[in-house]
Design a protein around this nucleic acid. Structure first.
Lengths: 353, 353
DNA sequence: AGGCCCCACGAAATCGATTACACGTCGATC
DNA sequence: GATCGACGTGTAATCGATTTCGTGGGGCCT
């Protein structure tokens, strides 16, 4: 492959001149044309490795994602990538597969690659490497999941309004025994969702006792199924379940189906994370939709702020409730009591899906 | 961040010695210890950019994938990444989003980054940039989709046995009017699946007339739905539909549900690409499963062959039929007529999903 | 004792770009 | 007509590693 020296020779100028032409600082007239012609004829493309070494900027961002096969994170990664591309950065994606040690491995690799900035949606709690990122001076932004004790802005969705809406929705439909499937205590995201849901229910005089809080360490299908099974074996089973992750909801649905129970007749089911598939299940699932694309965009923008040396704040974007039919009562086309702000019914969303 | 010079100074040796210690060509005794101690104390990590410039090896592979949000490709990307990691390479993923111009853009970026090799699962047909990859001398392997006129090995799944099994399955269940939802004529993958299906059906005396071949340019949800709608409006609608992509199958299911039709009673439905979700739909869908993880692994291995200068052949791995309940007749636990080799029933698969 | 070889190690070139600095030329200004 | 600035351009340093080549010293052989 041709390098800058070849171009310089062919154009009869020095390498410095070629570099200047290509970076816009150079001459404007005849010399410039000669250089550009040489570039064209040789099919020259600057070597980004060399450029990165000299300028200490790689034009690359890193994204370490907890689990790429989880559709919520896929969509998030897609959004981040779009935003990064739009700003002239390319993205290296590292998939931790929910394994903290693999996450650390990836973070290390990315630091060695001298990426310009790093986005991390952390698997598990805490991580020695994340501390090292901060220490290394590489700009860092946390995505979707906070990490206690790490001094970096975090971009994530705020479930408060969505969960408030959900509590109202369940109360209005007469569901009095809600339950939640959640990550174990100590997981920031899980704790927060539990607290918010419990508080929101309390406002309607509905309790969420511990027996109806099902924790599962694996945030997967099997975990969701096991917890749902436990709920159904209670002397007084719940009449509504919120699964705080889409894979867990899938497991919960399977358990219901295996026992011949129907949604929403025998059990209302709500899923946190509105991935496209849930609009196509039977029945379509009422969901808490995080503003995935906006999260991705905000994360990249926040990261760029830090890269450019500015101070950047954490970002909280509101999630909203998407009412479908998994809690009963089909959504009214003309809402009876008015639709609360932020709520949407199925018709309004996904215009082009 | 500390560099090799800092380490050399601290250890009281030259940079050459440090480099040799770190790369294993160096001394073994006391000097070595001093160097390693200095490395530890300074937290030194070699700068991969500089190393790549000197050695002309980046330790990075590129993967340009047609559509990351399509679960089949997500799984494929995940598999490729696992395999690459296992061999000490990291992976830059570029998501073309089924847009050829974005694909070209990504290929160019990756070439500029001087990746060691490139995997492409091409969006659309043909592409000027793919030719340039070959011309640039960068090792290239095509994944899942061939590109006519490109001289590079291709790793993909062979649907012949799966479609043969499917034809037998449909024939045994008395389905006589099959249909197929497929990419437009001229798309290599689409054409092949259509031909194989038609041939396999013919062996059972079943015809697949053109009116029951529904082409859709967008390989998406809406395309599948539209084609299914067309099928249902035929004077003699089909009694079984094969959707040759998972998103199109989703659209087809939606159309059936919208018309109040039941699977499998009113219509048998089979999906090409067995993504996890289809095991959890109601009813679970019979599917043609491509050996995704093996494809990923084979692709990386083939690419490494090329990187190391060896000639590499194309790889064809057999897909198999996963029988669930979307064509009628629940799978027998003890197969009545014996299970054909390669076929599996739901119980056997996905041990840990 | 002398000669050889091997090993450890340092000096310096190298990869391909960017950029600070110096210099020459030309036009404008007084 | 001399001076000053601006502009275009080349020379060379630089980024941080790897690697070639050369040298000095120690061990082994005869």
């Amino acid at each position: 492959m041709a390098n800058i020296k070849d171009v310089a020779e062919r154009a009869g100028v020095s390498v410095a001149t070629v570099s200047r032409v290509l970076n816009g600082h150079g001459p404007v007239a005849e010399t410039r044309e000669r250089v550009l012609a040489a570039v064209r004829e040789l099919g020259y493309r600057p070597n980004n490795v060399a450029r990165a070494l000299r300028t200490a900027r790689t034009g690359t961002l890193g994204l370490v994602i907890s689990d790429l096969t989880n559709p919520f994170f896929t969509e998030l990664a897609d959004a981040v990538e779009d935003a990064a591309r739009g700003l002239g950065y390319s993205l290296v994606i590292g998939n931790a597969g929910e394994r903290p040690e693999q996450q650390d491995d990836y973070i290390r690799t990315l630091l060695d690659r001298r990426i310009d900035g790093l986005l991390v949606s952390s698997a598990g709690t805490g991580s020695a490497m994340i501390g090292e990122v901060v220490a290394s001076g590489t700009p860092l932004v946390l995505l979707d999941r906070t990490v206690p004790g790490i001094d970096a802005p975090c971009v994530r969705a705020d479930g408060r309004t969505a969960l408030t809406e959900l509590a109202a929705h369940l109360a209005a439909l007469g569901r009095r025994r809600p339950a939640i499937i959640v990550a174990p205590a100590g997981t920031p995201t899980g704790d927060e969702r539990l607290d918010l849901f419990r508080t929101a229910l309390a406002a309607h005089g509905i309790a969420l006792p511990d027996e109806r809080v099902g924790a599962t360490p694996d945030l997967q299908h099997t975990g969701g199924r096991r917890v749902m099974s436990g709920f159904l074996d209670l002397p007084e089973p719940p009449d509504a379940v919120l699964a705080t992750d889409n894979l867990m909801a899938l497991g919960a649905m399977d358990e219901l189906r295996a026992r011949g129970l129907r949604v929403p007749d025998d059990m209302a089911l709500v899923v946190y994370d509105d991935v496209p598939w849930f609009a196509h299940t039977d029945p379509p699932l009422t969901a808490i939709a995080q503003p995935t694309r906006e999260l991705g965009r905000a994360a990249v923008h926040t990261l760029l702020e830090r890269i450019e040396g500015r101070r950047a704040e954490s970002v909280l974007l509101p999630a909203h409730l998407v009412i479908r039919r998994s809690c009963g009562e089909p959504p009214a086309r003309t809402p009876a009591r008015g639709t609360a702000p932020g709520q949407r019914t199925e018709e309004e969303e996904r215009g082009s899906a």
